[in-house]
């Protein structure tokens, strides 16, 4: 009897856990640099992310080489001169939603969330705090959006003087995710 109850508890808890994780492999990260001289935009549409609804843990991973620019030359400079993507091919974020209790998963709607964690770009890790929005759609769809600014110098990305005027001191980053339930 004890064994039966125990196995029931294990089965039940593992089922609950399975339902509480969300994932995407096709998240979007966009960045935008605006100066009077030039506006530069790049998009990556194959960002991976996993969100654990139970703990609030959230992770992102993006390949630097997958950021697409309008101009091939800009893309080349971005990879070779600034991000050194052969050496540092990935940008990562690992953190936590600090107000997960404010999200009502059973009621569709928009919820403001606070995200804290470690952002790694160009091999440098910085603590970041970001405000975001979760849109609970239904049991099989969750959308997430966040906008924040990144300073290249915080991540030891050096920009030569000759192009300094063309690249903003703070780059705007927009994150758009459409999560599906993770079934394992």
């Amino acid at each position: 009897m004890r064994l039966l109850i125990l196995s029931l508890i294990i089965t039940l808890s593992s089922t609950l856990n399975a339902q509480s994780k969300w994932f995407t492999r096709s998240g979007q990260i966009k960045f935008y640099s605006s100066t009077p001289v030039e506006d530069i935009e790049a998009i990556n549409n194959s960002v991976s992310s996993v969100l654990d609804q139970a703990t609030g843990n959230i992770q992102f991973s993006a390949e630097i080489k997958s950021f697409v620019f309008e101009k091939a030359l800009m893309q080349e400079h971005f990879n070779e001169n600034y991000m050194e993507s052969d050496e540092y091919p990935q940008a990562k974020f690992a953190g936590k939603i600090t107000n997960m209790n404010e999200v009502d998963w059973s009621t569709p709607g928009d919820y403001e969330v606070m995200i804290e964690g470690k952002l790694t770009i160009h091999g440098e890790t910085q603590e970041v705090k970001v405000k975001g929005t979760f849109r609970v759609v239904d049991a099989s769809s969750l959308k997430a959006k966040a906008e924040f600014k990144v300073k290249p110098e915080d991540y030891k990305i050096s920009i030569p003087d000759i192009v300094r005027e063309k690249i903003a001191k703070e780059i705007s980053v927009t994150v758009n995710m459409e999560y599906k339930p993770l079934k394992r």
Binding site: F23, R25, S46, S48, S49, V50, Q59, F60, S61, E63, I64, K65, S66, P89, Q90
Partner: peptide, 16 residues
């Protein structure tokens, strides 16, 4: 496709 990296969230090779 072109190899762009390895995703350690899903432990998958990534290409575009």
């Amino acid at each position: 496709a072109r190899l762009t990296g390895f995703d350690d969230l899903f432990m998958e090779a990534k290409l575009d």
